[in-house]
Design a protein around this nucleic acid. Structure first.
Lengths: 358, 358
DNA sequence: GACATTTGGGAAACCGGTGTCATTTAATCG
DNA sequence: CGATTAAATGACACCGGTTTCCCAAATGTC
């Protein structure tokens, strides 16, 4: 008589809640105590419809009672897939990254998924190989790609090739097939243009982003197009290509403020560069906003720390992180690959702009 | 005759590199091709000394050749431990978090470990339960605790109780037993005090951090003690307790700048509050540094973005992240529990201070 | 009432590694 | 040179889940 479903003879009866104190319960414990096979417990865990309602409830109640949580590693091993989401970034903006990851975790919390961060060098030759190794070794459930990495088509193709699902966060719809979170930068910068024009500015300078960022193009184009619709066309020397860095903002503003007539307003395509424009303006002894109006983009913490507080554009970054994670763990979306979520950032007016004087 | 070590008769010989194309090699493939048992391969993976040198080399060469990497999930399942490090934080400072995580990943890269982020609410009742569940469900190899969470002794005790190794990053040696990265804030703020005194400042204001942060106490005490050593004792109304926030910096500076005689220098215990002091000073029409010198702490990006650039204290945050990760994955340190790494931040002088005028 | 069909549930193999212990091989010794 | 001992290796169970396949009971059909 093999002691299989019965307690082993030597030990006291194990027909109920007598789990070894330190150890966590396993599927075998649940099955034994509930008096069903482990496969049935597995069916309950995976919400299989092939379990009678009363059986399901009995098992669920027991799992609840002993605080049983299936081991993600064992589950992952059997599924040949982990319960990890990768966050792949190459981005100097810490605020952006943390907002995304906090947002993603808003969604992930309680779902059984966890977020694994993977900073990398977007200019490295080993970028793709490194990300591929990361994805394959960890058998990631999916990855979130942040700009500017999200605009790297070779990377996206490589992920597709190894059947890794991914969500890209960017400011343009890059292709039809893959899920994305896109921020409608074009519409937001048009709002900036309208605002400056409505204040009465006509002599306007633009400090754009680096040409290898799609967002840079979108922001500049949205701004310039909207100005053009209102009859203002910026000459080339009023358009400076910056690098999304503080220093490039300084350089851009130096360039613009040296011109005659001097611009009465400058739009810098991110807050970093706007802060640089502040520096250039102050160094020239100009007062903001009396002599020069400045607008930024991102609504980073910096924007409200500057003096005077910077008028800028706010992105709902945390929401984007929430959405991205939701797209990855939501099974319904796996077939509906083209699901794309579009968010439009909006202007936040503070104290760095006023109508031109004189 | 059971076909165990021989290829199954129907299929073509599988004595060499004929892995199914799409799939990744497993330990069984390696064992079969190398002509050894999987246990021997396992020994090679785990650097067991019980393998003859030529066997080891043969297996290693093969693993290299087919690009075999052991599956962390399977390994973790057998080890009853994952290869994941948790980064647990409750901190508004994005720059700090990203620096730590990038630093930790500098160390982790290539080690087989990955970093899982876990933001949480330090004031929540479920904090400890949440972290415990995270650690146990993921069977984390270890966790890194960031301030102010690192100062929560109940949390540390809970981790100890479930035998989870951890490293705390803080500004005080909290206890002898557990490994820490401590930043010697006391020495750094003493340097600030010496600097301001040597410039000739005597009327000095201090905007401290919130009293529930140990770092706040350390920074204030280091500053005040050093001033006292130089014969300057600040009266109570020259000491303002801020909250490490921009707004509290504004309030603190308002309070200080309204006094007669007006302080000629203010030390704010982080850059956020220093930025607030800028705002308060500018609102009063004061010029920095001509009429008021200001020093911050952290050398966040903000410090160099402000105008004039802020004199502040630089922490080697990324190094701290590197060290923390190293302490967790370095097996030698497991017994040497008391290993503590102490780093001393240093003053970075920019343009926000000068000798008092008049 | 005999037979086909559905449905809930279980036994055993498996995912890719590691632990234990027995067994083979090589080295040492009297 | 056989016996003894140490070093290297292998067989097998196991970690905690899932998948495959099969069985028994319940239901439907004529």
């Amino acid at each position: 008589m093999t002691a299989r479903k019965k307690p082993s003879p030597g030990k006291p009866g194990r027909d109920r809640h007598d789990l070894p104190p330190g150890a966590r319960a396993t599927i075998n414990d649940i099955a034994r105590i509930a008096g069903v096979s482990k496969k049935t417990v597995s069916r309950v865990i995976n919400q299989s419809p092939l379990v009678r309602e009363d059986t399901r409830e009995k098992v669920l109640a027991l799992m609840q009672e002993v605080g049983y949580v299936p081991d993600p590693q064992a589950r992952g091993l059997a599924f040949r897939r982990s319960f990890l989401i990768g966050l792949v970034y190459d981005n100097p903006n810490a605020q952006y990254i943390v907002n995304i990851q906090n947002g993603a975790l808003d969604t992930l919390r309680g779902s059984g998924f966890e977020l694994v961060v993977h900073p990398c060098d977007g200019k490295s030759d080993e970028l793709i190989e490194g990300v591929r190794a990361f994805v394959q070794q960890q058998k990631l459930h999916g990855v979130i790609l942040l700009p500017p990495l999200s605009e790297n088509q070779a990377l996206a193709d490589a992920l597709l090739a190894i059947e890794c699902r991914y969500v890209r966060i960017a400011s343009v719809q890059l292709d039809e097939a893959s899920p994305m979170i896109v921020s409608n930068d074009r519409a937001a910068t048009a709002e900036v243009a309208d605002y400056l024009e409505s204040l009465g500015h006509r002599e306007i300078g633009l400090i754009g982003g680096p040409s290898n960022y799609r967002s840079a193009h979108e922001r500049s184009a949205g701004f310039l197009d909207a100005l053009a619709r209102r009859g203002i066309v910026l000459p080339p020397d009023r358009i400076f290509e910056g690098g999304y860095t503080f220093e490039s903002g300084v350089a851009g503003a130096e360039h613009l403020l040296a011109q005659t007539p001097r611009p009465t307003a400058i739009f810098a395509c991110n807050d970093e560069m706007a802060a640089g424009a502040y520096k250039a303006a102050f160094r020239r002894g100009l007062r903001i906003p009396e002599q020069i109006s400045i607008v930024g983009y991102d609504d980073s913490p910096l924007a409200s720390r500057l003096w005077p507080p910077l008028t800028t554009v706010r992105l709902a970054i945390r929401d984007m992180g929430r959405n991205a994670a939701a797209m990855l763990i939501d099974e319904r979306r796996t077939q509906d690959q083209s699901a794309t979520s579009i968010v439009t950032p909006h202007l936040v007016t503070r104290d760095s702009c006023q109508p031109p004087s004189g």
